[in-house]
């Protein structure tokens, strides 16, 4: 199931968030060698992990097997602060636009021979369900140019923000990806399951 962690419910996810920092360190520092993010305590936390950030967790039997971070574009985020060169025009900003970063799946849960694995599909389905319920209609992405094909294949409406640029030896492009019910339907089709991926929230939390 996919869980959204915000300051309002973070007290319930202390142990899981601890797993998140370690998963991020394992994937982004130890595997992808983004050495700027290395921390001696093995917990990858950066300046954008503020109370404004929303943490999206894929949890299976108490174990965090996948993660994504959503940042509001109305506040400082990666594209505005770290990679502004990828956006040649105005930054896409607004309450309906969130930046999707730090997509990570535990090594044990990556499917072989597929460009995108079931955990990533669930995370994305969760983000879309959350977005459609909260007036969010587009994501800001920075990714290898190749992934633009997958974004289009997933029935997002992709708008590149600049031409691909070489960053750390990879061709990286920034784009916005607009989604709607068709995008979610496409994800349901790929997952072979149209049920909600969101973990139920307890009634007293909604009050």
């Amino acid at each position: 199931m996919i869980h959204f962690v915000t300051p309002a419910n973070a007290y319930q996810y202390r142990a899981e968030m601890e797993q998140v920092w370690r998963l991020r360190h394992a994937v982004f520092v130890e595997e992808k060698r983004w050495m700027d993010l290395a921390r001696p305590d093995g917990r990858e936390i950066d300046q954008f992990d503020t109370p404004e950030a929303i943490h999206v967790l894929a949890i299976e039997e108490g174990r965090v097997i996948g993660y994504s971070r959503l940042l509001p574009t109305t506040r400082p985020h990666l594209l505005s602060e770290v990679l502004p060169q990828l956006c040649e025009g105005d930054l896409p900003r607004g309450p309906d636009t969130w930046e999707w970063t730090r997509q990570a799946v535990a090594r044990s849960h990556r499917a072989r021979g597929k460009a995108i694995n079931p955990v990533s599909l669930s995370l994305l389905a969760g983000i879309l369900e959350w977005g459609m319920a909260n007036g969010v209609r587009r994501l800001v992405l920075q990714m290898p140019t190749l992934y633009l094909l997958h974004v289009v294949q997933l029935h997002f409406r992709a708008h590149p923000l600049g031409l691909p640029q070489s960053i750390g030896g990879e061709d990286i492009i920034a784009a916005t990806a607009e989604f709607d019910a068709r995008t979610l339907a496409r994800l349901h089709e790929l997952r072979g399951d149209a049920r909600s991926v969101l973990a139920p929230t307890y009634p007293y939390l909604a009050a």
Partner: peptide, 14 residues
Amino acid sequence: RPMLHLVATYAFGH
């Protein structure tokens, strides 16, 4: 090249 890279990737998806 970057321009063709972008266009070809997008066109393939389309």
